[in-house]
Structures are given as C-alpha cells and as structure tokens.
Write a protein that binds this DNA or RNA. Structure first.
Lengths: 149, 149
DNA sequence: TAAAATTAAATTGTATGCAATTTGTTTTCG
DNA sequence: CGAAAACAAATTGCATACAATTTAATTTTA
C-alpha cells in the first residue's frame, strides 16, 4: 500500500463488499418474495421451519444468527399469517415452541421456485459458488470461535 | 440433491452465509468501533469522507449502497458529533454537500488501527481473502447489471 | 430444600434499511 | 418563456437488528 491510511479505504476492506453483497442479494430476492408475501427474514425463518417442523426460539436464533428481540415480533407475524403456531413447551415452560402449520407447509410448494430464480441472478460458475460458500463458512467458523472463546 | 425441496434448505443457499457473515463481521467490529464511538454504518460513511473530503448525498449513497432515508439521519448524527458539516451546493441547491471537518480528519488517526485488528479476526489466508474479495465483487457487478438493466 | 445462579423469551430503546411519497430545485422542451 | 419532466433530499412508515433489561421458569448448590 502507498501510505498508512490506505488500509482505511473502502475498497481495501473485506467487510464492505460482504455488507454490500448481502444487501444486494436480499434486494434481488424481494420481487420473488413479494409474490409469496414474505420478507427476507421471514423467508429464512420459514426455510428452517420447513426443515425442522418444530423448534424453540433459542435454537432458531442460533441457526439464523438472530436473537429474541428480532425473532419474537417476526414469529408473531408469521403466526398471524397462519404459517406457524407458538406454544410454550409442556416440559420446560421457558421454551417457546414454534411449530409449522399445514398452511405453512403449503407455502413451501409456492417457494420451491425461488432458489432456482435466485441462482439465475447470481452469475457465478458452479465452482465459484462452491468456493464462495467455503470461504464464507470459514469466516463464519472464525466468528463462532471468537464468540465462544 | 435428494429431493426437489433440498434447494430450500438453508445450508444449500448462498444468500444465507452471505447474510450471516455480513452480520457477524459487523458484530466483530463493534468493540473496536465502540472505542471511537461510531456505529458500523457511520464508520463506512467516514471511510468515504476520509477518502473524498467532500461529496453529495446521492454519490455517497451510490458508494455505500444506501439511500437518503438511511443517510439523512445518519449524516445529521455525524454532523452533531462534529465530524462533517452539511451544506447545500451553491451551484445546485438540490445537492447537499457533506464536508469533512478537522475533527473528522482527526478521527482518522484513531481509526487507523481498526483494519489491522479486524484482519486478525478474519482467519483467511492472503489468497483466500483475495479470492473472497473477487467473488463478492463479481456478485456485486451482477447485481449492478441487474439493477441497471 | 430454599436461596442463588442460570436459562429462555419478551420487552425496551436505539440505529439502521428501504419503499414510497413529498418538497424544493433545475432542466427540458413545446 | 413557462409548464412538464427530471432530479436530489427529506420525510414517513414498516421491518429488521441488537444490546440491555426484565420476567418467569428451572437447575444448582450450599
């Protein structure tokens, strides 16, 4: 680098393209998600629900990197839409169990076309997508380690 | 993939690790940014200001992928902190010029240590960081193209 | 076993982030 | 020229995000 301040240039950061890319990807999803009346955060939440059928808020938060401050209102909205129900666990009332409904399962059929449409928007080769995936997960692992000690 | 719904699994998406990674990186910046009393968004804004000294809101927004709805209150905060001043352009009053102050320039000296500290948190090799950078910019270019037609 | 510690959600407060609309200014063009 | 179109910010409304605190339930431990 030419001088000691070059490190502070936006173009020399790795954080910034990550931040920008994440937002742009979410923006590209929007028209597809509008079709099924979900926001991006609601969509990734439903993806977990489609996989697990039932999960408590804490586990859901660990999966999505979100806390109860974000999830509580979001899950109430998904409940209002009829895609999940929220009930306290019988065995441990501290836990709130989020359960997929039939209507929520139905939504999966409408959502099935979205990953394909999005893949068409991100112009990476198969190898590039895989390498990007690997690198992002490596950074995520480092972040996890740093978080846990 | 085993069945047609596998594409809807969170682990098979490229968008999700991107979204999670972005948030985790911002989280890792927080302690360093707390030291100089900036949020992440304020930090990337100041990075542009340190580079350009003066810029209007529209150009700043194009650089940061943010719109006036986000930038207007943020710039007012940075002005309150004394790091920038906001004035309408004499030649075209539609434009609001954001200008770095001496105090804003001083802040750069305190911020100089941050990129190094962050590099230590993201455990990628030089080559991996470069490849990640390249792939993110490729996705950003695709997003730009899609946006502009 | 009862107080202390831990845990899980919910709540509160602050800061984005963005779509859509409004306001004020400038440019275009009939 | 002067109305219409284009443009730049600001504003409004809604949806995250997350830190910090509170509330309620469970587990630990003295």
């Amino acid at each position: 680098m030419q001088n000691k301040y070059d490190a502070l240039k936006l173009d020399n950061q790795i954080c910034f393209p990550l931040y920008a890319c994440s937002k742009e990807i979410v923006r590209m999803y929007k028209p597809f998600l509008d079709d099924i009346d979900l926001t991006y955060t609601q969509y990734i939440t439903m993806m977990v629900m489609w996989e697990t059928e039932e999960i408590n808020v804490k586990s859901l938060g660990e999966r999505l990197y979100l806390d109860s401050g974000t999830l509580t209102p979001l899950l109430k909205k998904l409940e209002t839409k009829g895609y999940v129900v929220r009930n306290r666990s019988k065995t441990d009332e501290r836990n709130l169990l989020v359960t997929l409904t039939d209507k929520g399962r139905e939504l999966k059929k409408k959502a099935i076309c979205i990953p394909e449409k999005m893949a068409g928007c991100v112009h990476l080769t198969r190898d590039e997508a895989f390498e990007l995936y690997r690198l992002l997960h490596k950074v995520l692992s480092a972040a996890e380690d740093e978080k846990n000690g």
